[in-house]
């Protein structure tokens, strides 16, 4: 029956006949062999260059190593959380300016959104690292990471929030107005809470970008995970292994955040999501 719909990904290949099944079996074996060969080549390279030696990996048997990396990770998460909050606040303000109906505010907001979306985070970091101090402003390293990262993200947040607001059916606003609610309370109590629910998954995904951007903290010497990894490397002779492990930690964290985003999307789907909301 028609209720047994599969995804396009699986529908592209129809259920195989005997000949196709044989081809798939052969392809499976060949691809397994190829992947194994690839792994073998990589491992062999590690072995031949001595990178599998215990001395490169013994760092990780030490409790202090993990505590140090853990501290760095805490720094990363702290910076990401604060940058996330700042980006959300700034993004919310930009969004309100843009939909305010005031022409001038709208232009300013659009310009700022385009500007923050079109400039790399690293350039903002250099701005706070090299340019700002020349005006005699001494910011702690923490803010030299958080501010540029949040500036870089706020434009995207503004656009995400706006798409959410646009997705709230007009009738909701009209119904609230007909109850005699004032415009700002219509927006804050009726429209925005719904809009926010629609865009939770997109906001969580943006958090991944924030986490990634905080890795530039080493530029300003803020002790995040990456910076602590560099310290570890300068103390022990274990560059490759440390960078590899740190990369895996980042991948794991961002993967978890993405999973949360997918789960949130599943939850928000329960509220009827109007068509055409996804960008």
């Amino acid at each position: 029956m028609s209720d047994k719909r599969t995804s396009v990904k699986d529908a592209l290949f129809e259920p195989p006949g005997p000949k196709t099944r044989r081809v798939i079996r052969i392809a499976t074996v060949v691809s397994l062999a190829a992947i194994a060969a690839l792994l073998w080549v990589v491992l062999r390279r590690f072995y031949e260059t001595g990178q599998l030696d215990a001395r490169y990996w013994s760092v990780f048997t030490r409790w202090t190593t993990w505590r140090f990396l853990g501290k760095g990770l805490l720094g990363t998460l702290e910076a990401a959380a604060v940058a996330g909050v700042v980006a959300f606040t700034a993004g919310f303000l930009l969004m309100v300016m843009r939909i305010s109906g005031n022409r001038i505010l709208g232009y300013i907001s659009t310009a700022l959104i385009e500007f923050t979306r079109g400039v790399p985070t690293l350039l903002f970091i250099y701005f706070f690292f090299l340019v700002v101090p020349k005006f005699g402003i001494k910011l702690p390293a923490f803010w030299k990471v958080c501010l540029p990262v949040s500036i870089s993200a706020c434009g995207v947040v503004a656009e995400v929030l706006r798409s959410g607001v646009n997705a709230v059916p007009k009738g909701q606003k009209e119904a609230a107005q007909s109850l005699g609610m004032l415009p700002h309370s219509v927006f804050l109590k009726v429209v925005f809470p719904q809009a926010f629910r629609f865009v939770i998954p997109a906001l969580i995904s943006e958090l991944v970008i924030v986490v990634k951007d905080t890795t530039f903290a080493y530029v300003v010497n803020f002790p995040d995970l990456m910076q602590n990894a560099k310290v570890l490397i300068s103390n022990y002779d274990a560059l490759l292994s440390v960078y590899l492990v740190v990369a895996l930690i980042y991948i794991a964290i961002n993967w978890l955040i993405n999973r949360a985003s997918v789960a949130a999307a599943g939850r928000t789907n329960r509220y009827a999501v109007p068509a055409g909301k996804k960008q």
């Binding site: 990634k212 990456m226 490759l240 980042y250």
Partner: peptide, 10 residues
Amino acid sequence: NIPGASLLML
């Protein structure tokens, strides 16, 4: 999921 800086260092 890998940060650009992390990949570049590697």
